[in-house]
Computed example of a mutant assay.
Amino acid sequence: MKDDLFDSLPLLLSVPQAAKILGISRAAGYRLAKSGDLPTRRLGGRVYVVTESLRELGAA
């Protein structure tokens, strides 16, 4: 059932969207992104979380 959620998501998510999925605060999401615990990509000065990394975190 959880995989259904990830299948419907785009390849990249904003940090606030990823934080909401993980059930953490926006600030915590940015802290995890900055520390490298949440894999990110930068596009046009914005930071995005790689959706596949959320799936892997959920499986861990």
Rank of each mutant, 00 (worst) to 15 (best):
L43C: 09
V47K: 13
L54N: 04
K2Y: 03
L43V: 14
T40N: 11
R46G: 08
P39L: 01
V47R: 15
R46V: 09
Q17C: 10
L22S: 05
A27E: 11
G23D: 03
R31M: 13
A33Q: 13
L12H: 08
Q17R: 13
L9E: 00
P39R: 02
Y30T: 14
D37K: 13
L32C: 08
L5G: 01
V47Q: 11
G44T: 10
K2G: 03
V15I: 14
R42W: 09
F6L: 00
R41W: 08
L22N: 03
G44M: 12
F6V: 03
S14N: 11
S8A: 04
P10Q: 04
G36Q: 06
G45K: 12
K34M: 10
L57H: 04
A19S: 13
T51I: 04
V15E: 12
I24R: 02
D7R: 12
A27R: 12
D3H: 06
V47P: 13
T40L: 08
G58R: 00
A33V: 11
G36L: 07
L11V: 07
E56S: 07
A33H: 15
D4G: 04
Y48S: 09
R41A: 12
L43F: 15
A28S: 13
L12C: 06
I21G: 05
D4T: 04
R26Q: 12
L32R: 15
K34L: 13
L54H: 06
L32K: 15
L12W: 02
Y48F: 15
D37W: 08
G58H: 02
E52H: 00
L43W: 09
I21F: 00
G44A: 13
S53R: 00
D7V: 01
A59K: 15
Y30C: 12
L11S: 09
K2F: 01
G36K: 08
